[in-house]
């Protein structure tokens, strides 16, 4: 059980690293937004996983809020890219 969660955490951490590398490399701003988007989705799962690890349902709220607001954060930049703000 514990070992399993450790492995999962490791995989998620690897996913975060890969997206961060895309953020560092990404030639244009849009590529970096893609990295941000992927990172925020990954972080939603990570937060839920932490909530599970700490045995506290209330931590899920953070993940819930992130699911909504991460989207808006990305949308704002996307709207800026298309000249909408």
């Amino acid at each position: 059980m514990d070992l399993f969660l450790e492995i999962i955490l490791g995989v998620v951490a690897l996913a975060l690293i890969l997206s961060f590398v895309r953020f560092v490399k990404g030639p244009t701003a849009a590529d970096r937004v893609v990295a941000l988007d992927t990172m925020s989705v990954t972080v939603i799962s990570l937060l839920a996983l932490f909530a599970f690890m700490f045995h506290r349902i209330i931590y899920i709220d953070v993940s819930l809020v992130y699911a909504v607001l991460g989207f808006i954060g990305v949308l704002i930049i996307a709207r800026y890219l298309e000249g909408g703000i």
Binding site: F20, F23, A29, R32, V33, L36, M39, S40, V43, L46, L47, F50, A51, F54, R56, I58, Y59, D61, V62, Y66, G70, G73, I77
Partner: peptide
């Protein structure tokens, strides 16, 4: 890009805060 980077900083920070038991 700087703004996106600061957004990522606050993303990481909020994970940190959850790890530090400060939901």
């Amino acid at each position: 890009v700087a703004t996106i980077a600061s957004s990522i900083i606050s993303l990481i920070l909020s994970v940190f805060f959850l790890i530090l038991q400060a939901p």
